[in-house]
Design a protein around this nucleic acid. Structure first.
Lengths: 137, 137
DNA sequence: CTAATTGCAAAAATTTTGCAGGACT
DNA sequence: AGTCCTGCAAAATTTTTGCAATTAG
C-alpha cells in the first residue's frame, strides 16, 4: 500500500494492524460490493486466524470514519462499499450483483423533507443484469 | 374489509384465511413500513396462536403478487410496504422511521444499464427526521 | 506502558424450513 | 376432496457481544 495512503489512515487515528491493512487493501478499488463473509473468505488464506469479529469491528470503524458505506439491497445480508464518492447502484435480483452507477441525476430535496437533515441520498435500480438476461434465453 | 377488496384478493388466487385478512388489513393504509415483528406483535392480541412462519409466508405470497414490497434500509431487518405506487423513501438514522416521499423526480435510465432489464428504481434519502432533530437540541 | 484491537466462543436477532394437522374453496 | 395454509419447533444465516490475550503507537 502506498505511503501516502498509510499516512492518511494514520491521520484518522486508525491503528494499522495487519488485519486492518489487509481489509483496507482488499476494499480499495474493489467494486464488487462484498459482504462481510466475502471479505472474511478473501482474507482467510493470508490470515487463517482472523475472525468475523475483526471483520465486523473493522468495517464499523471504517464506516464511522466515512471510509466505507453499507449498502442494504439484499435483504438479510449487508454489502460494503469503499467507493465513497456519491453514486448510485443497480442490483441484479438474479445474481445479487451490485453495479456502481456514476451517471449524474438531477435530484432535488423534496418539500416533505424541508425540516429534516439530509445527509445523503442514493438511487437504487432493481432488475436483471445483462449477463443474467443472456443466460435466461 | 370492503367487498371489492375481498374479491380483488380472491381474484389473485389468494386463499383468504383469517390470518391473511388480518395481515392485509393491518398493512392497508399503513404507512409505518412495519417489520415482520411489528406485524406479528400488532396481530398477536387477536391471533394469539399465530406464528412468525405465517407472517413471513404471507408476506412472501403478497410480495409475489405485487401487493407488498420489501424495503431494505435498516441493515439486518426488512421493512414491508403495502403502498405499491412508485414512490421514494426517507430513512431516519436515529429513530429508524421510514417516510414515504411522493414528490416526483425526473430520473432517466443510465446509459450503463442499457442492456439490463430495469423493473423499478427508488431514491432513498438518509438523514435525521424533524422530530429527532428537535429532541437533539 | 496504555489503550485499542484481536480471536474465540457464545449469544442475539432475523429469517427460513420441514412437517403434521387443519382450513379454505 | 384436494390443495394450500397454519403453527410449532428446529435450523440456518448474519451480526453482535464479553472477555482474556496480544499488539500498535
Amino acid at each position: 500500500m502506498k505511503e501516502t495512503k498509510l499516512r492518511f489512515y494514520k491521520s484518522l487515528g486508525l491503528k494499522l494492524t495487519p488485519q486492518r491493512l489487509a481489509i483496507l487493501e482488499y476494499l480499495e478499488d474493489n467494486r464488487t460490493h462484498p459482504s462481510a463473509e466475502d471479505i472474511y473468505n478473501a482474507l482467510k488464506p493470508n490470515f487463517p486466524s482472523m475472525s468475523f469479529a475483526t471483520v465486523y469491528n473493522t468495517l464499523e470503524v471504517l464506516r464511522k470514519k466515512g471510509l466505507v458505506k453499507e449498502i442494504n439491497v439484499e435483504g438479510v445480508r449487508k454489502r460494503f462499499d469503499a467507493f465513497t464518492h456519491p453514486h448510485n447502484h443497480f442490483f441484479c435480483k438474479n445474481c445479487k450483483k451490485v453495479i456502481d452507477i456514476e451517471s449524474k441525476q438531477d435530484i432535488t430535496i423534496p418539500e416533505e423533507l424541508k425540516d429534516c437533515e439530509i445527509n445523503e441520498y442514493q438511487i437504487i435500480y432493481f432488475g436483471i443484469c445483462s449477463e443474467c438476461r443472456k443466460k435466461q434465453d
